Amino acid sequence: MTEIVLDTLGKDFGSFTALRDMDLTIRDGEFMALLGPSGCGKSTTMNMIAGMLEPTRGQIRFDGKRIDGVPMAKRGVGFVFQNYAIFTHMSVRENLAYGPKAQGMSRAEVTRRVSDIAELLQLTPMLDRRAAGLSVNILQRIAIGRSAAVEPAIFLLDEPLSNVDAAFRAVMRSELKGLQRRFSQTMVYVTHDQLEAMTMADRIAVMDHGRLLQVGTPLEVYNNPSDTFVARFIGSPGMNLIPARVDGDTAHMDGIGALTLTAAPGTAQVLAGFRPEVVHPDDDGPLAMGVEIVEHIGARTIVHLRAGETEVKAVLDAEHTAPREGQAFRFRVDAADIRLFDPATGAAMKRHG
């Protein structure tokens, strides 16, 4: 296992800054997800950790030792790319054995590692099949297994599940988490999919436009986003953000109603934020909007509400009768579930509730 420290790490490509002064410590044996939209700098960060790119400024340290200029082959990292990179002319067994053989391991050790990884990733029945002709799902599983077979101290995965189908993606999330726990590796996982990050990672580093915005456990990032970008990006759907005027312990929202706060910043213009899941239908509730669209998604119903130009989403479970489109919908939001943001900067204000 290895601790990774990124110290004011930056990367420029000509006049374009891909990463700005990133400070991040990835703990020994931790599963860290780098999460953000395309172009946010997450893959650039991973490529510098791997040694495929050199930083423009700052340092990368493994267990306290600088690795500037250390080639990728000597960093003790395993890397899995978005597009599987395997030898299709070889059998599954030969692909899994490639790394351990290249490291000069004994035949018995190579056999053990191949057997263990194949069993863990459900590849045992096809060990002697050629990789050519296998499905994309299986090829990506082989790519993960080939890197894992050398049991690297650091395992880097760059969007490894983005090209596989949804059902297989759900299976692989569980298997990757099991793989990391079994070998106690420090794992860095790049993804734009917040569901992957939320379900797999010990902590999430949320990025946008080359900046690190927030680091925390999935629940910390979900419950207390650092700014409006994180609030909207995390969650499905993301957090509702409504212009409001705070007066005393009340946030007034034009055309909708008022929210009661347990603490307030005096008099201020704010964005009042609350998750769709904390909207409670209430015939006597203080808030009212019109139902625009109703989406039934299994046990959940997503209700799209509108009042003038303001939109709100509510997530209801099966115990609530779904409203009909065109109806008026009254609801409440508990004070403890409200977050306030500065409308000018987007930064979270002192927690309220």
Results as ranks from 00 to 15, higher is better:
Asp337Ala: 11
Ile142Gly: 03
Ile117His: 07
Val246Phe: 02
Met253Gly: 04
Val294Glu: 12
Ala288Asn: 14
Asp158Asn: 09
Ser43Gly: 07
Glu151His: 09
Ile154Pro: 10
Gly145Leu: 06
Pro265Ala: 11
Pro100Ala: 05
Val230Pro: 08
Arg57Glu: 15
Gln327Asn: 13
Met105Gly: 02
Ile138Leu: 15
Leu35Ile: 01
Ser38Gly: 10
Phe229Asn: 05
Ser38Trp: 06
Glu151Thr: 08
Glu220Lys: 12
Val221Glu: 05
Leu305Ser: 10
Thr217Arg: 06
Lys42Met: 10
Ile302Ser: 01
Arg107Lys: 14
Val70Glu: 10
Gly353Arg: 04
Met187Ile: 05
Asp334Trp: 06
Phe168Trp: 10
Lys11Val: 11
Gln59Cys: 07
Gly36Thr: 05
Leu316Ser: 02
Arg275Gly: 08
Ala231Thr: 01
Glu311Cys: 02
Ile138Met: 14
Ser236Tyr: 04
Ser174Val: 12
Glu311Lys: 11
Ala18Ile: 07
Gly14Met: 06
Val188Ile: 14
Ala132Val: 07
Leu179Ser: 00
Phe233Ser: 12
Thr217Ile: 03
Gly69Lys: 09
Ile144Leu: 13
Ala314Glu: 08
Leu212Gln: 11
Tyr98Ala: 00
Val188Met: 01
Arg130Asp: 00
Pro37Gly: 10
Ala108Met: 05
Glu109Asp: 15
Ser162Lys: 12
Gly14Pro: 03
Ile154Ala: 09
Gln214Thr: 03
Leu287Gly: 12
Leu213Pro: 01
Ala18Thr: 09
Asp282Gly: 02
Gly76Tyr: 12
Phe155Pro: 08
Gly257Pro: 09
Asp116Glu: 15
Ala166Ile: 00
Ile86Cys: 02
Asp158Met: 09
Ala197His: 12
Ser106Asn: 07
Ala33Phe: 06
Asp68Arg: 13
Ala170Lys: 14
Gly99Ser: 11
Thr345His: 08
Leu96Ser: 10
Leu9Met: 06
Arg107Thr: 10
Gly326His: 08
Val315Met: 14
Gly235Gln: 04
Ile138Val: 15
Lys11Thr: 06
Val150Trp: 09
Ala18Phe: 04
Ile86Lys: 07
Val291Gln: 03
Leu219Val: 10
Arg232Met: 01
Arg57Phe: 13
Arg20Met: 01
Phe183Ser: 02
Leu139Ile: 01
Glu3Arg: 13
Thr124Pro: 02
Gln194Asn: 03
Ala73Gly: 10
Arg129Pro: 01
Pro37Arg: 09
Ala153Lys: 15
Thr345Met: 11
Pro71Asn: 15
Leu35Thr: 03
Leu35Asp: 10
Pro286Cys: 11
Leu123Gly: 13
Asn95Pro: 06
Met239Asn: 12
Val70His: 13
Thr310Pro: 08
Gln194Arg: 07
Arg61Val: 07
Gly69Thr: 04
Gly273Leu: 09
Met198His: 02
Gly235Lys: 09
Val291Asn: 03
Arg173Met: 04
Met172Gly: 02
Asp158Glu: 05
Ala231His: 01
Phe329Ile: 05
Ala131Thr: 14
Ile117Gly: 12
Met289Glu: 01
Leu271His: 11
Pro100Gln: 03
